[in-house]
Write a protein that binds this DNA or RNA. Structure first.
Lengths: 242, 242
DNA sequence: CGAGCCGTTGAGGGGATTCAAGCTCAGTGG
DNA sequence: CCACTGAGCTTGAATCCCCTCAACGGCTCG
């Protein structure tokens, strides 16, 4: 974990004005804060960069901080005592992760970077301060919690239900939304697709190959792809009726 | 929906002192409130009773209230545009449901009573009042949100992963925890089991019958069963190694 | 008593897994 | 430079789990 403190006003610092200029400010946790508020907090928030497949935090760890995702994709994993692991959710730009820490609770999942990830690390006590001083923060927090809950329930409904082919289509739809609109999307390894959709690597591979032949996706190795959204929609619709 | 206002001090009222005497007070949303606080809110909270298979609220509805579950089991459903429906989570005694309403958002799921359910209906504005007046409430709220998020992620990991036999064992384990310890548990209809585990009725029936033959559960029709927790544990363990 | 819902069981088929082999590609060291 | 290696991906063949289609019995209720 590369941790760099943020000094908003020191223009010589590479992370100068990072909070104020943060591209996700409008949708991030402190989006509603004015400059005075930023002055108060900016010295406590650190910018964190994580390389793919490195953990942000581990399940059971007594966390002292929450994170906002500034860029990249984070996955949440749980594994059974028997060893099989399952990816239960993804988070992307603007999402708040590790909220359990605010309740002095251990982290509930393994959080691992899928792509290069940029995070803002926010100490627990800092949120506590703002929660008492300001009125708007709790509401922002609850919003994040609800977003996470909604994402998790949608994961059950879309990525854990029905035939494998449809589950993969839904996954691609999500990946497309997580990336730049129209741009190439991050494509997980086959083993990761399997962990997301509860499939074996072989089945994941077969299905991806099939979509490639059908023209729904164009592979851009390694770990990227271009998605034909129109073809994807078509495939999803013909899925139900066929 | 049978709605009965709660008048805490009117001893002639059947719901008299319901808030003060509420069995789930210690673990419920207003658990931390003192009597003075109760005085303020008790006239605004209504007791709601719902019969099995009746909705608490519908997805998309602009909700003006959250609910705490005082007794019974509530299920959350989502259905795809193609018509197939999936149960994504269960809630039981002490759980807070419909929290989206606090954010002026439409309800995210269909919430439907599985068993006879008793709820406390808490208007949104009441929570807003308490949130500004008291400091402890937001924390309680966040705790509920985290409980729901955790339940949803566990649903992915346990009830949507692996072979159907193991998924059913995990479901029975949950149902046992939702009911009285040692007592009979509520057993969903086969169709409902199917919607929870993404199975057909036939497969659900076959698996239940198998567990009955193996002595893991004893059916107590209609819609109840006794579970041999030791046998269940054994079955879950031999599952992984076999 | 017949209608309808729920649960059960059987037979057959299909989709996903398992086991296995071969491929590409980047990194390594001769 | 190129064989060697290992990780990731792909494909094939056989097996198995679960689905589909179907029939039937128990039960409630009009």
């Amino acid at each position: 974990m590369a941790i760099v403190p943020l000094y908003r006003r020191d223009a010589r610092h590479p992370q100068a004005q990072a909070c104020a200029a943060c591209e996700v400010r409008g949708s991030a946790l402190f989006g509603a804060l004015d400059d005075a508020g930023l002055d108060h907090i900016h010295t406590h928030i650190a910018s964190v960069e994580i390389t793919p497949d490195q953990p942000v935090y581990a399940r059971g760890e007594a966390g002292a901080a929450v994170f906002t995702v500034r860029a990249g994709i984070v996955r949440f994993e749980r594994s059974s005592p028997h060893g099989d692991r399952r990816i239960v959710r993804l988070a992307g730009r603007g999402d708040l992760i590790g909220q359990e820490a605010l309740l002095q609770r251990p982290y509930a999942d393994e959080a691992i970077a899928c792509t290069p990830v940029q995070l803002c690390r926010i100490p627990r006590h800092l949120v506590d301060q703002l929660a008492t001083a300001q009125g708007s923060l709790p509401r922002e927090l609850m919003l994040r919690w609800q977003v996470a809950l909604d994402a998790s329930e949608a994961w059950v409904a879309e990525l854990s239900s029905g035939p494998a082919h449809r589950r993969l289509l839904h996954l691609l739809l999500r990946l497309a939304r997580l990336g730049e609109p129209g741009g190439p999307v991050w494509l997980p390894r086959r083993e990761e697709i399997g962990a997301m959709l509860d499939l074996t690597v072989e089945t994941a591979s077969r299905l991806v190959s099939r979509l490639r032949r059908e023209g729904v996706i164009e592979l851009l190795p390694p770990r990227a792809a271009r998605i034909d959204l129109a073809a994807l929609e078509r495939a999803l619709n013909s899925e139900g009726t066929g």
